[in-house]
Nucleic acid binder design. Sequence first.
DNA 1: AAACTGACTGTTA
DNA 2: GTAACAGCCAGTT
Length: 103
Amino acid sequence: MQDSFPTRVYQILAAIPKGKVATYGTIARLASSPRAARQVGGILKRLPKDSTLPWHRVVNRFGKISMEESNYIRQKECLLKEGILFDENDCIDLTRFGWAGDD
DNA sequence: AAACTGACTGTTA
DNA sequence: GTAACAGCCAGTT
């Protein structure tokens, strides 16, 4: 496809199965830029207000939410609501909930 | 157009 | 085992 990077990220985001999470690296890889993990975060941070994309399904490679506290709480709530569980360290078990790009 | 920034990641110290 | 450093690359100013 010829879409620009953010567009690809949006489409990948929309493709994350409910109850799964993707790391920035995974999304970057699927967006054909394996080293642009950072940029994925940059895009999510500046997501358009009218976007209804499941941005909350994106965490860092440790399965940990990587943002300031206010949004952190909001994201965690969303994930819990989708059946994603956090361990005592507030980390998601990526071996269980991590999305490999194939459901 | 050039420079700065960052919701990451992998490697070294 | 934790802490710091450096690449990375696309968005923003």
